[in-house]
């Protein structure tokens, strides 16, 4: 099973081109259609429109030359409302969304587009925070996992698709105080085997301590180019009391980081 239609949101920021390159590579690998999507608020500045169009032109050309079936869509309005309906209408399987530095994931009291999209989009959603332009093709992907891997099928499809596109090595990373005696949780080991069946090189690593800090330290010390986190399933109260590791990592990421929210 693989993606058939991938959306990538492009805007006036250069980081959106980095994220779009992930989408382009996955589209090549999965032989999927690619839709380059832009939405501008009403009354947007002319320079924003110009920069966005320039990025769209650049990416469209790149995708076209790679033989991908690519279309570009530009709409006027609130992206938080337009994108979910467009993605549904176009029957998209996966949407890449570039997270800006001012958008704080997990801060429910804020009303950024990403929060609207998390609620409204029904497809697989990859919210990407890019910190650099140098590694559009990551060689090492870090995937932190909890003891029980939720939405295994969707998660497998995404990670396998991503790693397969770039021939990347995937490191499954787990934190537990009990690891020394019991080894890696069975769910993670079986997930690793499923990835290996898709010809992905898999490593297993463990750590202890604060989740957010440990993920960051692991990513830097092991030279990972990309982190793929699961969207936090903690409720508001849980996040207030016990913090939000995914939010902490994506707010100050050591490298490009994807927050993957499986489709409903």
């Amino acid at each position: 099973m693989s993606y058939r239609k991938i959306f990538s949101v492009v805007n006036e920021h250069t980081v959106s081109t980095v994220i779009a390159r992930y989408a382009v590579s996955m589209a090549v690998s999965c032989k999927a259609e690619l839709v380059l999507y832009a939405a501008h608020g009403e009354g947007s500045d002319e320079s924003i429109l110009r920069h966005t169009e320039r990025h769209l032109d650049h990416l469209f050309t790149e995708a076209f030359e790679l033989g991908i079936h690519v279309t570009r869509i530009t709409e006027i309005g609130n992206i938080g409302k337009l994108l979910p309906s467009r993605a549904q209408a176009e029957k998209a399987d996966l949407v890449f969304y570039p997270l800006m530095s001012y958008e704080r994931y997990g801060a429910d009291l804020q009303r950024h587009a990403v929060h609207q999209l998390l609620r409204a989009i029904s497809t697989d959603l990859a919210v990407v925070r890019a910190v650099g332009m140098a590694k559009p093709h990551p060689a090492h992907i870090l995937v932190p996992l909890a003891r029980v891997v939720g939405d295994k099928e969707r998660r497998l499809m995404f990670i396998a698709g991503l790693a397969g596109s770039f021939h990347s090595r995937v490191t499954l990373f787990h934190l537990s105080a009990e690891l020394d005696t019991k080894g890696m949780p069975d769910d993670i080991t079986s997930f690793g085997k499923l990835l290996q069946q898709q010809n992905i090189t898999v490593l297993e690593r463990s750590g202890r301590g604060d989740i957010g800090k440990s993920i960051t330290v692991e990513a830097i010390t092991r030279h990972n180019d990309l982190i793929v986190l699961g969207a936090s399933e903690r409720g508001l109260l849980q996040r207030l009391l016990f913090s939000n590791p995914a939010g902490d990592v994506i707010h100050q990421p050591p490298c490009n980081t994807i927050l993957f929210r499986p489709g409903r």
Partner: peptide
């Protein structure tokens, strides 16, 4: 230039220095 500030190798070391317990 492809990386600045905390995204540089220098910045990453500063970042993990800050995260070491």
């Amino acid at each position: 230039v492809y990386a600045t500030g905390m995204a540089t190798e220098f910045g990453k070391i500063a970042q993990i220095t800050g995260k070491v317990v």
